[in-house]
Nucleic acid binder design. Structure first.
Length: 418
DNA sequence: TCTGGGGTCCTAGGACCC
DNA sequence: TCTGGGGTCCTAGGACCC
């Protein structure tokens, strides 16, 4: 038996913890670059703000209803996520952190009173972190996802017992099943499968032939046959991406190189903080994907010796960038992808290339330490530039209440005269 | 004018090996 | 001129997720 814990409107809820005036108010949180709406309070949903809509398309609606708007603040959301997950771990040891705002729990131990257990978890997380959660409980992960939807409409906790499954699936559009997107939904509808119940009843071999083993597993899970185990052991990471859209398009090579250098620096920092190295690097650039002549070229290079040294990675990435750049293009986005990740502790040395010198490694340690202490980018490579006019927009970011001393909330108390 | 970012898994096809 | 069968590894591309 599985439970899926899902934080309600997570990013909005994080903002509300530190600004209680936002309770009951319509609130939205924007994506990076203030591009799209990616979180909405219940009040904002009720006013008709769709998920994922470009901000500029709802600007009028937002000012008309005085909806509060926040740029995304991942330092805050990441830290709040950790607090929620730590709380869950104290209540149920078998835990899979599935995303920033979701976790699966193995509920086999609580089979006798799953509803009461769910309510206890919900109450404790609320009390310890201030984040409201919904909990769906069922025999498989896919069914727990369904149960979670119902929990949001029914007091926060819902147990989907086998006797209720059929009736619930009959009312559920096939695209709302976990793992079925609108694309697959269209193909399924063409086969006369439009509800979750019809998908559950379909032929397994047909699904495997027409789609793949992923869909076959989803059908089995809908039938109550568990195919997706709890993955409590974190798999080693396989790839790492840092990419951003630009606040304004880039047309010159020096600026493009600055942007790529900035993303490489950030990605190398992430590698080091996770004790990883990379052995394969890809740089990609993109023009505006909403215009004609959209282009998205990339250039890759393997490394003889895996590394996480910013300087070495910069050298390769900047060469790749030069090979990609075409004068006359307006670039809207760039990024760097590291693959072939491995442990920084056990580096396979190359016969033909010198490995990171001790000096180089010490430099990285020092740089990371200074930047942790004095703030990101306090010490950085010159290649990343200083002005960065292309930097992403983030006009309405809240303070880093929990991860930055200067941003710690202050509480003022005054004795009231009686 | 403006339209996000970071991941995983699966499959097909090519290169290469014995 | 004729020219097998079976396997692994790697990569690119397509699909999905939050």
């Amino acid at each position: 038996m599985f439970a899926l814990i899902d934080c309600n409107n997570f990013y909005v809820s994080c903002e509300r913890v530190f600004d209680p005036k936002l309770q009951g108010q319509p609130v939205v949180v924007l994506s990076n670059n203030d591009g799209c709406v990616i979180a909405r309070s219940a009040e904002a949903k009720a006013l008709g703000i769709p998920m994922g809509i470009p901000f500029f398309k709802v600007k009028d609606l937002i000012s008309q209803h005085q909806i509060q708007v926040f740029s995304s603040n991942y330092a805050l959301y990441g830290d709040m996520s950790q607090r929620v997950m730590q709380t869950l771990a104290t209540l149920c040891p078998d835990l899979e952190v599935y995303s920033i705002d979701e976790a699966f729990l193995d509920f086999s131990g609580f089979q006798a009173q799953p509803l009461q257990q769910g309510q206890l978890i919900r109450q404790t997380v609320g009390q310890w972190t201030g984040i409201p959660v919904s909990i769906g409980i069922a025999a498989t992960k896919v069914l727990a996802k369904v149960a979670n939807k119902l929990a949001k409409q029914n007091g926060g906790v819902f147990v989907l017992s086998p006797s209720k499954v059929q009736a619930v699936l009959m009312t559920l559009p096939v695209e709302e099943v976990w793992g079925i997107s609108s694309r697959w939904g269209q193909r399924l509808r063409a086969l006369n499968i439009s509800t979750a119940a019809e998908l559950q009843a379909t032929n397994l071999n047909l699904m495997r032939q027409q789609f793949n083993i992923v869909l076959e597993r989803i059908v089995r899970e809908l039938r109550g046959e568990s195919c997706l185990p709890l993955e409590s052991i974190v798999n080693p990471q396989q790839s790492l991406v840092v990419s951003r859209s630009f606040g304004q398009p880039i047309t010159t090579l020096p600026e493009l190189k600055q942007a790529v250098a900035t993303y490489v620096s950030r990605a190398a920092e992430k590698l080091r903080s996770r004790q990883l190295t990379t052995s394969y690097l890809t740089v990609f650039v993109r023009t505006n994907r909403f215009q004609e002549n959209y282009e998205a070229p990339n250039a890759s290079q393997g490394l003889l010796t895996p590394t996480n040294h910013t300087g070495k990675l910069l050298e390769i990435a900047l060469r790749c960038t030069e090979s990609l750049y075409q004068p006359g293009r307006a670039y809207k986005k760039a990024g760097v992808l590291f693959q072939g990740l491995g442990s920084a502790q056990s580096i396979q040395q190359s016969l033909f290339e010198e490995s990171d010198s001790e000096k180089g490694a010490a430099l990285m340690v020092t740089m990371d330490r200074l930047n942790r202490r004095y703030g990101r980018q306090s010490l950085h490579y010159g290649a990343t530039g200083t002005r960065q006019p292309w930097a992403m927009r983030s006009d309405q970011r809240s303070p880093q209440y929990t991860t930055r001393w200067q941003d710690l909330p202050e509480v003022h108390a005054r004795a009231r005269e009686i």
